[in-house]
Design a binder for these strands. Sequence first.
DNA 1: ATGAGCGATGAAAACCATTACATCGACAGA
DNA 2: TCTGTCGATGTAATGGTTTTCATCGCTCAT
Lengths: 355, 355
Amino acid sequence: MTRPTIEDVARIAGVSIATVSRCLHMPDVVAVKTRERVLNAVRQTGYNLNAAAQSLRQRRSNTVLVVVPDIGNTFFSEILGGIETEASAAGLTMLIGDTGRSDTGRSRAREDAYVRYLLNGRADGALLLADPQAAWFDIPTRNAVGLPPIVAISEVGPQSGPVTVSIDNEGAACAAVTHLIALGHRRIAHVAGPQSNILTAQRLAGYRRALGEAGMTPAPDLEFPGDFGLASGRAAFDLFRDHRPSALFFANDEMAMGFLSTAYAAGVRVPRDVSIVGFDDIHFAQSCIPSLTTIRQPRSEMGATAMRLLLSILAGQAPASVRLPFDLVIRGSTAGVPDGHGADTRMASSPAPRG
Amino acid sequence: MTRPTIEDVARIAGVSIATVSRCLHMPDVVAVKTRERVLNAVRQTGYNLNAAAQSLRQRRSNTVLVVVPDIGNTFFSEILGGIETEASAAGLTMLIGDTGRSDTGRSRAREDAYVRYLLNGRADGALLLADPQAAWFDIPTRNAVGLPPIVAISEVGPQSGPVTVSIDNEGAACAAVTHLIALGHRRIAHVAGPQSNILTAQRLAGYRRALGEAGMTPAPDLEFPGDFGLASGRAAFDLFRDHRPSALFFANDEMAMGFLSTAYAAGVRVPRDVSIVGFDDIHFAQSCIPSLTTIRQPRSEMGATAMRLLLSILAGQAPASVRLPFDLVIRGSTAGVPDGHGADTRMASSPAPRG
DNA sequence: ATGAGCGATGAAAACCATTACATCGACAGA
DNA sequence: TCTGTCGATGTAATGGTTTTCATCGCTCAT
């Protein structure tokens, strides 16, 4: 028993295949009586159109490829939600590709595979939750002919191609650190993201800018390395112990959460002993102990905006990048400077910042 | 400038399209000299084969559909990882479909869409991280002709079709509760999952069985409702306050984490005042405060196994369901019964936690 | 009457690759 | 020299749909 084709339906309904196709796509141009006969035949045979044949003929797959660096990262899921809403409203399918955390051998192969999908015609366009300038993506696509349109989200640099959706990461980081400064903190450390990630530099820059604006000098020994993972948050605790900042600004929430549990186990209390700010406002940030002060990105909106942008490009319109607003969400992990802290302050005193 | 076809390559290389195709798929049967000429032409034109044409001709899409109830749930991502590894080893693409949390209007439309992909020939098979008996899936596929093979993972009932990969949820729940009983707990509550989910019944049954085996009678007022979300874990705190169990077994980790933060805010300490067991061992379970005792499912292995199963079915072999082992992971959220529990203790006063 | 206009339908080309089969030349064995 | 084999390549059918253009039978205005 093989899959019925449009021809089977046509035969049973006693019409031509053209009419069957019209019944399915432009029902109003075919006579009611005929339409009924055809739809009956469709039901009777259990017909479903062949997607491959359709794409081949239409030269379009009605699919959009979404490349995610790590599907396990809860940060991305809400973006995906926003994308999905807009995509399905437009009748498009989302093909999600997970490249896996970079630097692993596996991820390289997957990246290649996803680039190929794009070149293959498997997708009509792509949404990249990654830097389009990353070598794996940029090089093979640079002079590809007939490359479908691409919109990059979140991880975008100053010259990340023509169309991007992002927040002002530097500004957000600056706001986060300024919040700490306003609380009276003077020794503020930053736990950075992975070297290779473009967001790392942006958030670090924001951290430094905030210090500068408050008249302080960034101290290199308070810039801790990290990689966005729980473990590197835990590792940051050792550095914390060595350098004794009164507050830490983490480049993402996951690291902040890793720090939180390690600190707790070591008897260090947040925010009594140290204040913590994260970045992203992931799902669990509200139910950490204590709940996490962090930067919220309008994730769902970012996804939706990017998808709309892609659709407009597909419709032939001129693209324009979008920058969306962020929020500083103040929760329980930040408070004033602990008593007595700052005795040995290295970053020294200046009056409270503009607040 | 339009996409080059195989014909363009053939013309430039001065061969027939058949030879080009052979160069790409069975390079060894074509003369080295010819091969070089063809590969040069491929590079020169920037040719990529058209996926739609290929699927149409081969009657196979080299794609597997993975339907996930909620991509934001970290529980699923590791399963996806396991699937991906096996899939890409076999040269298959993963098409991930997120149906969204059930009960929302949107999810209905997406479910339909994914069923259609299956019937469409967009995928050669499907992995379902959901109950294949769910109405949205079962009804439209029941008598579809030429339905590709399907393997269900995790959320499977006794008659969930022929091929499934799962753990013994009832047994795991029983083990979790038995652990609490062994610690001396006698008033043990269960926070269940959503009604509609098949896992809910299985884990509840395990809870009851453990009580029964220990000679206790399950008390209906200690069976709290839940929906797998953070918020329902928080809501369970009110019920906890009313009914005073000395321990709670949650049907998943996310609810346990919701409870944890609410309890903390209310001054109730875990495990001093109440012991907590979750289910799933999600990423953040290790960095809760305190770290969460839970049931670990071999998620990556489940995904990989399911994918291998699907491949073997596609290869024409007879399928057989697989049941994988689970682990009880004992961490910091469980301890013996608090002193004086069982009286009308108002919890409050007791010495500071171990910090 | 006649032809223009219109609605409904059919015939056939086009989309691009894979693959069974045919062809061709060269070479070995008889 | 002839035949059989073999390796390399070409020819052409095939897959299922969409879409353009043609056709056909009407009606309505002239």
